[in-house]
Simulated assay, not measured.
Amino acid sequence: MTYVITDPCLDILDKACMEECPVDCIYEGARMMYINPDECVDCGKCMPVCPNDAIFSEHKLPEDKEPFREAAAEFIEETEAEGGAEDFGPIGHDHPIVEGFATREQ
């Protein structure tokens, strides 16, 4: 099982989840964060620190957020983001699903 970051993270990039993750499996895209489903150990530490309630267990993912599960897996695979987000660094783009959302005014 893994956790999934969804659209409330768009254009926020708070990064509290990254700081809390003990296995460094949360990668930074241009507009939101992504959890590597192969690296996530299902500890759940990221979920309560997210100030936007953007993180869900994949088994409790609301139906309207389902596209973000596939987007994360595809994004991680396409960018070859693995081995720890800190060493990998920010990724300068996002999955097409994310790129299709309007920019959030802050």
Rank of each mutant, 00 (worst) to 15 (best):
E77V: 08
A71I: 06
G83S: 01
I26N: 09
D42Q: 10
V23G: 05
E63G: 05
E80S: 15
A73R: 14
A71L: 04
D42M: 15
A73G: 05
G44M: 00
E74D: 08
V41R: 14
E78M: 11
C21K: 04
K45Q: 14
C21V: 02
C21L: 03
D24M: 06
Y34G: 15
G29V: 05
F56V: 01
A54V: 00
I35F: 04
N52H: 12
K60Q: 13
A71H: 06
A72W: 02
R31H: 13
K65H: 08
R31I: 05
C21R: 01
P37V: 07
C21G: 04
M33G: 13
E70H: 12
D38F: 10
K65V: 09
I26S: 02
K45I: 13
E78D: 10
P48H: 08
K60L: 07
A73E: 04
C50T: 01
E74R: 08
G44S: 12
V41H: 12
E82H: 07
K45N: 08
I55W: 02
D24N: 13
P37H: 01
K65I: 06
P62Q: 11
D42P: 12
D53S: 09
P51Y: 03
A54P: 10
I76S: 06
M32S: 04
A81C: 10
K60W: 09
T79M: 03
A72G: 07
V23F: 08
F56G: 11
P48F: 09
Y34T: 01
A81I: 04
V49P: 06
M33Q: 11
L61R: 07
T79K: 04
N52P: 11
K65T: 06
A54R: 01
N52T: 11
H59Q: 10
E63A: 11
V23E: 02
D42T: 06
I35L: 01
A81M: 03
A73M: 12
E82F: 09
K45T: 12
P37I: 06
A30P: 11
E39M: 15
I26R: 00
A30K: 10
H59F: 14
G29D: 03
G84S: 03
I35S: 03
D64Y: 15
S57R: 10
L61K: 14
N52A: 09
A54M: 07
G84R: 04
A73W: 00
F75D: 05
I35Y: 02
C46S: 12
R31P: 06
P67W: 04
F75Q: 00
E66W: 03
K60S: 14
Y27M: 08
M47T: 08
P62N: 04
G84C: 02
I76D: 05
M32F: 00
E80H: 09
M33L: 15
E39H: 06
G44Y: 00
L61N: 03
R69V: 07
P22F: 00
C21D: 00
I76Q: 03
T79V: 01
P62S: 11
A72R: 10
D38K: 12
Y27C: 02
G29A: 00
V41F: 13
V23A: 02
G83T: 13
E80M: 11
K65L: 13
E58V: 15
